[in-house]
């Protein structure tokens, strides 16, 4: 069954000086339920714009976008969002952050509490429910953000550079956690990242996007996310198949960057 369907999507921003920027041009793809798609590309390639359109925060200027054959017209709880950082509510403790979604929908009580505790244990924060979020490290805060998103049981999880602000070691652990959650919940995930390695490792589908106009430059179907569930991530990332793909994508992105520089020089 087709889950997310994006058809000839275009997004043009009008600039205050009268000009305009084509952030997305003619983007089309279908994403089946249960897949994990990573979006990679240089700044200005429209990957965050695409994510925001799927989330419903932005309306596209052309084309259509459907989730389970229903058009996306605004934000909704069928699509959960995890941001880079700073999107937790620091005036609430960890448990109240996670229960935010259910509480906004009028679901309070022992059942919600039990579910929240369950989720906290899933992300490895079972003992941290009563802690203030600002007392936690960056990695733990992102665990809270994941749990908060899962509390609403969304169909689609959108992640905007969720690990971008973390140190390398924490980042690796969190990558494995994301794969684990993906496997356990069978959710569809769209993840934006700047890191080629992360995009390769987490995406069982990967789009390399290009700027001016923002578009999908190349698509990959990848085995690493599934393999990462059972195999050692370090070894996997050092395997010839992985490094070969990494070099290929890196040189692709290098070419794009050079084209951009040439453009600006002219």
């Amino acid at each position: 069954m087709s889950n997310l369907s994006v058809d000839h999507l275009g997004m043009i921003y009008e600039l205050p000086n009268g000009g305009s920027v084509e952030a997305l041009k003619d983007v089309s793809f279908d994403l089946e339920s249960g897949r994990i798609l990573t979006l990679l590309g240089p700044s200005g390639c429209g990957k965050t714009t695409l994510l925001n359109i799927i989330a419903g925060f932005l309306a596209p200027t052309s084309g259509s976008i459907n989730l389970n054959d229903a058009p996306i017209t605004g934000p909704g709880q069928d699509r959960g969002m995890v941001f880079q950082q700073g999107a937790l509510f620091e005036w609430l403790n960890v448990a109240d952050n996670v229960s935010f979604g259910p509480r906004m929908n009028g679901n309070e009580g022992p059942e919600t509490d039990a579910m929240v505790q369950d989720l906290l244990e899933t992300v490895g924060l079972g003992d941290f429910g009563q802690k203030a979020v600002y007392e936690l490290s960056g990695g733990m805060q992102q665990r809270v953000a994941l749990a908060r998103c899962l509390a609403n049981d969304p169909e689609l999880i959108l992640m905007d550079e969720p690990l971008g602000a973390l140190d390398a070691l924490t980042r690796e652990k969190m990558q494995s956690l994301i794969l684990e959650l993906w496997d356990r919940t069978q959710k569809t995930i769209v993840l934006v990242t700047h890191s080629v390695e992360e995009a390769l490792f987490l995406g069982d589908r990967l789009f390399v996007m290009a700027p001016r106009p923002g578009r999908i430059e190349r698509e990959y179907e990848l085995p690493f996310a599934k393999l990462g569930l059972t195999e050692d991530p370090r070894e996997l990332k050092n395997s010839p198949e992985f490094t070969e793909k990494r070099e290929e994508i890196l040189s692709l992105i290098w070419e794009m960057e050079e084209q951009i520089m040439g453009h600006e020089g002219a």
Partner: peptide, 8 residues
């Protein structure tokens, strides 16, 4: 945005 996505 997070709050909107959580159904608020």
């Amino acid at each position: 945005h997070a709050a909107y996505s959580l159904g608020a």
